[in-house]
């Protein structure tokens, strides 16, 4: 029932996503300028974390698919 090798790798992806919204990072992003894509920086940062999440999860998907292939 524990984590597989692939899941342990994926855990790091999840940790990175969580870290992006924790106080030390939010503290750095907590500003209005520069205004990027028409929105204040903190809103841009929150929005940027969304595609970053998708990229990390895509990597996770590849890792798990590869692991499934090896187990077959």
């Amino acid at each position: 029932m524990g984590l597989s090798r692939g899941e342990r790798k994926v855990l790091w992806c999840f940790a990175l996503i969580v870290a992006g919204y924790m106080p030390p990072v939010l503290n750095l992003a907590n500003r209005v300028s520069p205004v990027i894509l028409g929105v204040p920086f903190i809103l841009f940062w929150s929005g940027l974390m969304v595609p970053i999440t998708t990229c990390l999860m895509t990597y996770a998907y590849i890792v798990r698919e590869k692991e499934d292939g090896e187990n077959r």
């Binding site: 899941e7 996503i17 969580v18 919204y21």
Partner: peptide
């Protein structure tokens, strides 16, 4: 005001978690 960014943040955290528990 800007505390509304929590709505974006929790979505990302939730989907990251889903990759573990969902399957």
């Amino acid at each position: 005001g800007m505390s509304i960014v929590y709505a974006m943040a929790y979505g990302s955290i939730a989907y990251g978690l889903y990759f573990f528990i969902g399957p």
